[in-house]
């Protein structure tokens, strides 16, 4: 197998602070001690591959997948689409993208969610797909509602969709959240605020994409995702004593 080189070390400065008192649960769930930094090896550079056989025809259609096409979910119909690239700007092909979200009223279909917004009998709230040869993915879904959560006295999550991406290396594994352009709650959210740079947080805000919207049907939002890349070099010296 060709050696694509080690993973580019993670720039942790762009990521959220693990310990952030504004997000109370992080206080007891963030490591206190420094991480052990090493060069990646096969354990991190390899990863699972997923075949098209895994993905059902409606898996990326959250409007229909819960009822297997029998009845559509309630809410504002949207297309969430974009590309998965690596840090070298190469498309990440055939990689698994999974999403989960609340329904239009801000309620999750989860046994621990007791918010009194009702469940939509026609909405499950999860979907998945594989990227194509250009790294593109798309989901048809409804725009999730904002919801309150127990943190400080009056905290609300902005509208958001959770996104999980594999890449081709276990060391590329990433979970993030997509926010929506113009949502005033983003600026008040302690989870969004775990990312200290507003410019980095803005990278999680999907713009309205009218050009890819379908008249009389759905609005589109674009969300591109960048995973860690690999550092290839003609000079691959081994460290002395390693």
């Amino acid at each position: 197998m060709t050696d694509l080189g080690p993973l580019i070390p993670r720039n942790r400065a762009i990521h959220p602070e693990p310990y952030d008192p504004g997000y109370k649960t992080s206080v007891t769930r963030s490591p206190n001690l420094p991480l052990l930094s090493l060069e990646s090896g096969p354990s991190e550079e390899t990863g699972p591959a997923f075949g098209h056989g895994l993905i059902g025809a409606l898996d990326n259609n959250l409007i229909l997948n819960w009822t297997q096409g029998a009845a559509p979910a309630v809410g504002e119909r949207i297309l969430l689409h974009g590309r998965v690239l690596d840090e070298n700007a190469r498309p990440v092909r055939n990689t698994l993208v999974e999403i989960w979200q609340a329904n239009a009223g801000g309620r999750y279909r989860h046994k621990k969610d007791s918010y009194f917004a009702p469940l939509d009998p026609n909405f499950g709230g999860c979907g998945r797909t594989l990227t194509d040869d250009e790294g593109r993915y798309e989901f048809l879904t409804i725009r999730p509602g904002a919801y309150p959560w127990p943190n400080r006295g009056n905290d609300w999550r902005p509208m958001h969709i959770h996104v999980s991406v594999f890449g081709h290396s276990f060391g590329q594994r990433l979970i993030t959240q997509v926010y929506f352009e113009g949502d005033p709650l983003i600026a008040h959210c302690p989870i969004a605020a775990t990312i200290k740079s507003r410019a980095q947080l803005d990278r999680l805000v999907a713009p309205l994409d009218l050009a890819h919207s379908r008249p009389q049907d759905y609005l589109a939002y674009k969300f591109d995702i960048v995973l860690r890349g690999r550092r290839q070099s003609m000079f691959e010296n081994k460290l002395e004593g390693m």
Partner: peptide
């Protein structure tokens, strides 16, 4: 530089099981 930055992470949250 011809290099992109990784997308910032966010917590998986309490309902991660729904998706995964």
């Amino acid at each position: 530089l011809d290099i992109l930055q990784e997308t910032p992470s966010q917590t998986a949250g309490p309902y991660v099981h729904i998706g995964l």
